[in-house]
């Protein structure tokens, strides 16, 4: 799993590349938690280059989003889901509770609206 971060207007845009599953979930969670500890609370998880997400990835996404909302007045926006990954968000019901955007720019702007 390759992870990159760009910061725009106080929003941390975290771009993932690779499968988001039991082999990579700890890496992604640690990466975001490290930034939460440094005071960040607004994140975009850009999944343009994620071809697959399993229950392990879904759990990290929902746990982090809930924590940011409940404890930091922040959020985790999701962007650029590939069709298969989008389907998994729908099947699991997570699309009903997360803010999902077509691209990372919209997801970033979503924090100012």
């Amino acid at each position: 799993m390759k992870i990159e971060e760009n910061i725009l207007n106080d929003v941390s845009r975290v771009s993932l590349e690779g499968r988001f599953d039991a082999d990579t979930c700890d890496t992604v969670e640690a990466f975001i938690r490290e930034r939460i500890e440094k005071g960040r609370s607004q994140f975009v998880l850009n999944m343009e280059n994620v071809p697959f997400i399993s229950s392990a990835g879904l759990r990290v996404v929902i746990i982090i989003a809930r924590e940011l909302r409940n404890e930091y007045q922040g959020d985790l926006h999701i962007s650029a889901l590939q069709p298969t990954v989008n389907k998994v968000f729908e099947i699991s019901g997570l699309n009903n509770v997360l803010r999902i955007f077509d691209d990372a720019e919209d997801a970033t702007l979503g924090f100012s609206k």
Binding site: S55, R59, I62, I63, R66, S92, G93, L94, N96, V97
Partner: peptide, 8 residues
């Protein structure tokens, strides 16, 4: 027992 969301 639960849905993904309810499990969390």
């Amino acid at each position: 027992q639960y849905t993904m969301l309810e499990n969390v």
